[in-house]
Simulated assay, not measured.
Amino acid sequence: MPIDAAKALAAEPRTGEIAWSTKDVQLYHLGIGAGANPDRSSPATDPDELRYTLESRLHVLPSFATVAGSGSPGVIRGLSLPGVEVELAKVLHGGQTVEIHRPIPAEGTATVTRGLAALYDKGKAAILVLRTEVADADGPLWTDDSQIFVRGEGGFGGDRGPSSRLDAPAGEPDRIVERPVREDQALLYRLSGDWNPLHADPEFAGLAGFDKPILHGLCTYGITLKAVVDTLLGGDVTRVRSYTTRFAGVMFPGETLRIRMWRQEGGVRVAVSAVERDDAPVLADTIVRHS
């Protein structure tokens, strides 16, 4: 059987060292659209964008945790776990949660511990929950959970797991912003370490059931968090405590994201859709918790 649940869950977490530089942070920020001036009314040297792109005043968006020093995202790492042998074309990123324990420094080294936190049986699919815990000499920095959806690998008799679906937000959004996605956005974003050909190779995308390469879910994830921070948190990245989402649909390079935000006690509820496809859902059940 491609997934041996007992073997996968019994595997010990793996520990290693990671490092990142200001260049890595800048490249990530550019990969999620920093410096592009979404309102198109101010120059690229706007201070609000320079905090993401200029090393002398660099602030680190918490979603950088998903790529920091990893060389590959959770989707790819999940395929190298003991007891997991599946085809990459069957794999989709189902959801993502990052909990921030302290502001992420613009450069640093840290110890990373990675393992399988849970394995759920959804019948026609399996869900792997991959946990990454990162700490430096001063203590924990962040915890990162990736939910990996593997088509056709369920039915092994395991726990179905909890439902991640939330009730729809009540009332009209407090803010709505739109963010255009460049045609080459996926090609730029993948330089931060996600080399999955689904996001660059039309032939591979066809094997996965798509007409053309799709944008990385984690790219949309980063674009959305930046919009929330810039719009409702005064540009202060240190206010973010956690950020969770469910990837509800695909986004294609060249389309426009519509990001709806509802203020809630201690956080912001978010829904993201594709403007050109009649607001087709892209991110759902999304919450940014903040101070």
Rank of each mutant, 00 (worst) to 15 (best):
M251W: 00
L233G: 03
D159N: 02
R258D: 10
E276K: 10
A44E: 15
P140A: 12
R175Q: 14
F149A: 05
T111D: 14
G155V: 06
G254N: 09
K23Y: 08
R289K: 03
F149Q: 02
V98N: 05
L233K: 05
A10T: 05
T220H: 06
E12G: 04
R190T: 14
K124F: 12
I32V: 15
S192P: 04
R14H: 01
L283K: 03
L218M: 10
R40V: 08
T231Q: 06
E203N: 04
L207T: 06
L218K: 07
E172Y: 10
D230Q: 12
R40K: 03
F64C: 02
V67H: 08
V150L: 11
D144E: 07
S42W: 07
A274H: 06
S41Y: 07
L88C: 06
E153F: 10
V282W: 06
H216K: 00
D136G: 00
I223H: 01
R289P: 00
T132H: 05
L9D: 09
G171Q: 15
G16C: 09
T245V: 15
G108A: 10
A205S: 01
R269D: 13
P2Q: 13
L9G: 09
G108L: 05
H93E: 07
S63Q: 01
A274W: 07
L187K: 15
A8N: 04
E87R: 13
L81I: 02
E276T: 08
T109E: 11
T22C: 09
H290D: 06
S146A: 15
P162A: 15
P180C: 11
P213C: 02
P2E: 13
R260W: 08
K122L: 13
I214D: 02
A200G: 12
G206T: 13
E203K: 00
T53M: 08
P103E: 08
A5C: 05
V60Y: 03
S42V: 06
T22H: 06
G267H: 03
V275G: 01
D184A: 07
V250F: 04
D48V: 05
P180T: 08
R182G: 10
S21R: 06
F204V: 07
G217I: 09
G115V: 10
V134H: 02
L207I: 03
A11W: 09
N37A: 11
I214L: 13
Y28V: 10
I32P: 05
Y189L: 00
A117V: 06
V268K: 14
P202V: 08
R241W: 02
L188Y: 11
D39H: 12
L187Q: 15
D201V: 04
S163D: 15
S63R: 01
